[in-house]
Design a protein around this nucleic acid. Structure first.
Length: 879
DNA sequence: CGATCCCGCCACATT
DNA sequence: AATGTGGCGGGATCG
């Protein structure tokens, strides 16, 4: 496109020409581009960066003109358009600013020329990415609008998104302060954490939600949901409690939406988020409804946001190929890891961020975030120091922090997710053709590997021995039924449970696997410094994300050193509760308010607790068996084969390029496996957090089974109502530690297998998968057991991406290719075999649970679930 | 024809 | 009430 523009535009119509350059950048290299200010450069006058003064000067000068121009613009436009290429006239106006530009500036602005993305680039070009702390640059909306020749409205669109990332902050009426990217990493980190929490928990929550749904379904969801969430999450800016609330609800949209959108990326293992999914997730209220119109509007907004993010070089557009076809999606190409805040402000140090969660301290329902933040910092404004001084103060009038709301929010979110899932499911069921995976993180088309349909058979589902686990069942019965009875039926099988196994598997058609957690959790933990230990802890925590949260909240980092211990007890307790747990699920709501669970003080956490319990239950059962169950199914050999092909080949693969890359990436990121519902499985969704396993496992094994559970399988029916969720968080922690380094993910499993719960097993699989993938190109990182890997799959991924960056990460090529050839793509494994399975197991060996393996073996006979397959594959590498 | 998303009306918030 | 903000979605343009 850009190219086009150039050819055309450049020559003729200069107006945009400046932009033109930009456009190029943008188009061509979104990743990096943005920062550098291309645009103005030419201009004689100002420099974009330094020139505050100049700029101002210019602006002031220009603005009037510009303004006129805008006004006139209408007039012009027509003209321009008509003339398009030729009209020099327009130049005049433009000229003002860009003398250089030329004459033709205006000519016809094609739509692209006027695109928000381009506009954003121009906007960004005006300011230094990393302004000196001292100078704060203030941005006058009018001025900028006039300079850029657009209506103010458009500037708002840009600024709102930038504000959500803290690149700017509103100082006053028409004034914004430019902060640049100094805090970006921090912000992202915060968002990631928040995202994990929120979404992660949500995921976990889902159970509760289900319950809630029952009640709320009808009513509440909507009510509560709305704003509060936003704030909590978003408010980043106002550290204080004040929260933006003041801001009025309105802020909800773009800003919040933007943050949420970013969170999805950060939480996503694949780093790819499809628009529709994002839209659905972001539509809080109506879960099910999802009016079309609303959805449509949401998507529109997402495009706006995506344009800005693209200009920032944080995401790029890609297409995900799913069963149905390609879907527009965006891939995160920004930083994935946020080690300390990388950049941070110049001045400030630490800072905390503003994330959303913080405020809620009290309730902190989710929020772990809060906890994390605490650590980092003070509540104060995160940026506090920002260059701009007062800038950030926001309007906040009063904060309302509705904690409760948050909970509600969660609920609402959960609901949404559930709704989304449900819808999809329904759709799928109804329209087989349609079936789309709900998965949040669908596998990117690119990565072929991503999606795989699992044969139902695959999971024989096993429930954990813990009958109690039932949660699903129970829950399902309760909550689910109402909403999704039909699906439920599948459950009929109630899923077969396997004793021991922690999981529930329902035979349903499609499976989705989502991996939520990011390592991020770890990050939070990081505080603790205890590096390793911390990690472990994290892991443990991770295992029980929510729980962890709570815990954290309660005691912060428990003992890093002996985190486990703490946890254990907790775990036990939990377990105790667990018994109830299943029920608890039903109970859920309370959790919110009442932390009854022993520990958690924070009501907010409660949910987590539940989860934990839940997990525990699952876990407790028997790991080993679980393993069997899960792995066992060697479903379709075919699939396996496919996998194998894909994977294995991955390295070898011809597609290597793209495919391999992705695979590689994925492996790293084992976070989620998304399985599309293919034919059979359409009904089910699975979420796995790749990460989880490791840490969780260990813990779990020892005592907290719950933790271990990485995956939850829910019957489609249940899903219908809710999406499955696994707390991703869990995984993450582990990863770091990991020993297993070679693959955190893998490790997870293994360890898990050994001990812990079966669940882990699953997880492991996922993890495994990734590894396997890794083989490919970039992959290496993992295998080697690089620490990085451990840290977080995600990170790893990111790393990979980074490293690979261009190639892999970018993967454009790859992506494209894949897209094109989805079918051909590797996804399908073919040749996988039991042998591998074995191997896989072996890998885990490190973990050492023979048992699990054995089981596997036994299972092998069965079909292996796709998951397993993956595992297998991955596993191969490990050894 | 579906994907994008510009444009600007208009409601709500702030001054 | 004026002006700032920004939700929202029609409908144009792109691919």
């Amino acid at each position: 496109e850009n190219i086009f523009d150039r050819s055309r535009m450049a020559p003729k119509t200069p107006i945009k020409n400046e932009p033109v350059d930009l456009s190029k950048q943008k188009g061509c290299t979104p990743e990096r581009n943005p920062i550098t200010p291309v645009k103005l450069v030419d201009r004689p006058q100002p420099d974009p960066w330094t020139p505050t003064a100049n700029l101002k000067m210019l602006v002031s000068a220009a603005s009037p003109d510009m303004r006129d121009r805008e006004k006139k613009k209408e007039l012009f436009r027509p003209i321009e358009n008509s003339e398009q290429s030729d009209t020099p006239e327009s130049l005049q106006y433009d000229m003002v600013d860009d003398s250089t530009v030329d004459e033709f500036e205006k000519q016809r602005p094609s739509r692209k020329q006027k695109s928000l993305g381009l506009l954003c680039q121009k906007f960004l070009a005006r300011y230094p990415s990393y302004p000196l702390s001292t100078e704060k640059t203030t941005i006058s909306l009018d001025e900028v609008a006039s300079i850029l020749g657009v209506e103010r409205r458009r500037i708002y669109d840009i600024v709102n998104v930038l504000e959500s990332l803290h690149l700017v902050s509103r100082v006053a009426k028409n004034q914004y302060c430019w902060h640049g990217r100094h805090n970006l990493s921090q912000t992202l980190k915060t968002l990631q954490e928040a995202g994990e929490l929120q979404y992660g928990e949500l995921m976990t929550f889902f159970q509760h939600k289900e319950q809630d749904l029952e009640y709320k379904f009808g009513e509440r969801k909507k009510e509560t949901i709305p704003d509060s969430q936003d704030r909590s999450l978003l408010d980043f800016s106002e550290p204080d409690c004040t929260s933006a609330s003041a801001n009025s609800r309105k802020d909800k949209s773009l800003r919040i939406m933007s943050q949420k959108f970013v969170m999805l990326f950060l939480v996503s293992k694949t780093k790819i988020v499809t628009l529709d999914i994002a839209a659905k997730i972001l539509i809080e209220e109506t879960q099910d409804t999802v009016d079309h119109s609303k959805f449509k509007t949401k998507v529109r907004r997402l495009y706006d946001i995506a344009n800005v993010l693209t200009s920032l070089g944080l995401i790029k557009k890609v297409h995900v190929t799913e069963e149905r076809g390609r879907k527009p999606a965006f891939k995160w190409i920004g930083p994935v890891e946020f080690p300390g805040k990388t950049d941070e402000l110049r001045g400030h140090s630490p800072t905390s961020d503003p994330l959303p969660g913080t405020q809620r301290g009290p309730c902190a329902p989710y929020q772990i975030c809060a906890a994390g933040k605490q650590r980092f910092t003070r509540h104060a404004s995160f940026n506090g120091a920002q260059p701009c001084e007062g800038t950030r103060r926001k309007v906040s009038s009063e904060p309302n922090s509705p904690r409760e709301e948050r909970q509600d929010e969660y609920c609402s979110k959960m609901i949404n997710l559930a709704a989304v899932c449900r819808q999809k499911i329904e759709e799928d069921t109804r329209n087989p053709s349609i079936t789309s995976p709900l998965s949040l993180l669908p596998v990117p088309g690119d990565s072929d590997f991503c999606v795989n349909p699992l044969p139902q058979a695959v999971f024989p589902v096993v429930q954990a021995d813990v009958p109690s686990l039932s949660l699903p069942n129970g829950i399902s019965s309760q909550a689910l039924h109402p909403s999704t009875p039909a699906a439920s039926k599948t459950e009929n099988g109630k899923p077969t449970l396997l004793p021991n196994q922690p999981f529930l598997c329902f035979p349903s058609s499609s499976l989705f696997m989502l991996c939520g957690g990011l390592q991020e959790n770890n990050l939070r933990e990081t505080l603790p410094t205890a590096g390793d230990v911390g990690n472990r802890r994290a892991e443990a925590q991770a295992a029980v994300p929510s729980a962890a949260c709570q815990k954290r909240g309660s005691h912060k980092c428990a003992s890093l050193s002996a985190p486990v211990d703490d946890e254990e007890p907790a775990a036990k307790k939990q377990t105790m509760e667990q018994s109830a747990v299943p029920l608890s699920l039903a109970v859920p709501k309370k959790p919110f308010e009442s932390p009854k669970a022993e520990s958690t003080p924070g009501s907010g956490c409660t949910s987590a607790e539940h989860l934990e319990a839940f997990h525990l239950d699952l876990a407790s059962p028997a790991a080993p068996e679980a393993a069997d169950s899960e792995p066992t199914k060697p479903l379709d050999s075919q699939e396996q084969e496919k996998w194998s092909q894909n994977k294995d080949p991955g390295e070898p693969s011809p597609g290597r390029e793209h495919i391999s890359k992705e695979n590689a990436n994925q492996p790293f990121l084992p976070q989620y496996l998304y399985v599309q519902p293919t034919a059979g499985l359409s009904s089910f969704n699975f979420l796995f957090s790749a990460n989880q396993a490791p840490g969780a496992i260990s813990l779990a094994a020892s005592q907290l089974p719950s933790l271990s559970i990485p995956c939850v399988m829910v019957p489609s029916a249940a899903l219908a109502s809710f999406p499955l969720v696994c707390s991703p968080t869990i995984t993450s922690p582990l990863s770091p530690v990991p020993d297993g380094s070679f693959s955190a993910a893998t490790s997870m499993n293994f360890s898990m297998s050994g001990l812990a719960s079966t669940t882990p097993v699953f997880i492991g699989t996922t993890a495994v998968v990734t590894p396997k993938v890794s083989p490919t190109p970039s992959v290496d990182p993992q295998q080697p057991a690089h620490p990085t890997l451990h840290l977080s799959p995600v990170l790893a991924r990111s790393c990979g991406a980074v490293k690979l960056d261009s190639p892999v990460c970018m993967g454009h090529p790859v992506t494209l290719l894949k897209l094109q050839q989805p079918s051909s793509t590797p996804l399908t494994p073919k040749s996988i075999r039991p042998a591998r399975h074995e191997a896989f197991f072996k890998t885990p060996g490190s973990l050492g649970d023979p048992v699990a393996w054995k089981k596997n073996e036994g299972n092998q006979t069965r079909n292996v679930s796709s998951v397993q397959r993956r595992l297998e594959i991955s596993s191969t590498s490990p050894d």
